[in-house]
């Protein structure tokens, strides 16, 4: 890789939500990231709607009959896990050289 290229990319530090704003590559373009996210929305919508068209022949538990159960469960579980992580960080976070001092 040439230095010039490295420098150009070195400048395009991502915005605060962690996604890069500009650049020459497909994933570096915000428009493409947005397209990617729209794609995800679309897939999610299809998966929720899919619950109308099929029936689970042998559900193990009653909760599985709730509409799109695993969809909202997955979303909620993910958020809860991340928040528990944030909470845990308050307790267990230490400087990197904690054990070497």
């Amino acid at each position: 890789m040439s230095m010039k290229r490295t420098k150009r990319h070195g400048l395009d530090v991502g915005n605060s939500d962690g996604l890069p704003r500009s650049g020459g590559d497909w994933f570096a373009r915000p428009a493409n990231i947005q397209r990617f996210i729209y794609g995800l929305y679309f897939v999610c919508a299809v998966l929720v709607l899919a619950d109308w068209v099929y029936e689970d022949p042998h559900p193990y538990f009653a909760v599985e009959k709730i509409y799109a159960f695993q969809a909202w469960f997955g979303f909620a579980a993910f958020v809860v896990i991340v928040y528990l992580g944030k909470l845990l960080r308050l307790i267990v976070r230490r400087p990197e050289d904690y054990y070497d001092r």
Partner: peptide
């Protein structure tokens, strides 16, 4: 797929709303 895709959706939601915890130079006990 519902479980996985909606988990991914949750990630996008948390990133967009700046709720996802940033990586930090630290260790955890």
């Amino acid at each position: 797929l519902q479980l996985l895709m909606f988990a991914a959706l949750a990630f996008v939601f948390l990133m967009k709303t700046k709720r996802y915890p940033a990586e930090q130079r630290a260790i955890n006990l």
